[in-house]
């Protein structure tokens, strides 16, 4: 059976979904269900984690029985990210962490230097790090050197919905890093973006805004679910090569080839 393997765990779904910005927790739960996702990300940075005052909301998310992937969204220094990761591990009882160290406020681009540094510290401390990166090849190679066993390059900046902005760079990444699961994280705007990512051979997608802010989040979530399956099937099935000349799929017996003038 075709499974996504991340840090020794297997998943049949190839969507990771975020838990922010939904119109209500009920719509969030319905959207998670429709997405088919088995991994959900959550942020606790602004919920005063030392006080555990976000419990009500966290418990709702825990009820989904999905693998929790706490993130360090909004952290700008290595120290902040490491501290928040440790708090998350304690609160959610998981050593999975989506590492995110922001390098620029406006496009929320990850800081490659600080992300690599934080990844080293966290991996040494026993974390299973899923780092948010860009499509920069060297950044991703350094994350592998640091010991990351999963990479999460962006399609485009968080929340922009611009899809896969630099297919060349992403294709290069996939060709150069063949054996490590890669999840396209951030920037997806519509199901066809996710489908394209899977067709290109990426292992999964992580999204939030595209679903949470859609007019109908639950329907959009289902759309992504189907698109990801379509993309994966396409990748596994192997697409045909493109050609310059048409080739009819119905038999052409009876159509004399000498009629062709050029």
């Amino acid at each position: 059976m075709d499974q996504l393997k991340l840090y020794g765990q297997s998943f049949s779904s190839r969507i990771l979904i975020g838990t922010a910005m939904y119109p209500s927790p009920q719509i969030m739960l319905d959207a998670i269900k429709q997405s088919g996702s088995q991994i959900v990300t959550l942020s606790l940075r602004r919920q005063n984690p030392s006080d555990q005052s976000g419990q009500d909301f966290w418990q709702l998310i825990q009820k989904t029985r999905c693998q929790l992937l706490p993130n360090t969204a909004g952290c700008k220094t290595v120290q902040e990210a490491v501290t928040l990761a440790k708090m998350s591990r304690e609160i959610f009882n998981t050593d999975w962490i989506k590492l995110e160290v922001v390098g620029d406020d406006y496009n929320l681009q990850p800081d490659p230097f600080l992300t690599v540094e934080a990844a080293k510290i966290l991996i040494k401390d026993g974390f299973k790090v899923l780092p948010f990166s860009t499509d920069d090849l060297v950044f991703n190679l350094r994350l592998l050197d640091a010991g990351c066993q999963v990479l999460m390059p962006w399609g485009s900046p968080i929340g922009t919905g611009k899809g896969l902005m630099n297919p060349y760079a992403l294709q290069t990444l996939r060709e150069r890093i063949k054996d490590v699961p890669m999840i396209i994280d951030a920037g997806l705007g519509k199901p066809s973006d996710a489908c394209l990512a899977l067709e290109m051979g990426f292992d999964a997608v992580l999204l939030n805004t595209a679903v949470a802010k859609a007019n109908d989040p639950v329907l959009m979530s289902n759309g992504f679910n189907l698109a990801v399956q379509a993309g994966r099937h396409s990748f596994l099935a192997g697409k045909i090569q493109t050609k310059q000349t048409a080739k009819a799929s119905t038999p052409t017996i009876g159509m004399p080839f000498w009629h062709q003038t050029s």
Partner: peptide
């Protein structure tokens, strides 16, 4: 809008 029952003072952010 913070999903939390935290009643502490406002954060600097």
């Amino acid at each position: 809008e913070i999903e939390s029952n935290d009643t502490s003072p406002i954060s600097l952010q």
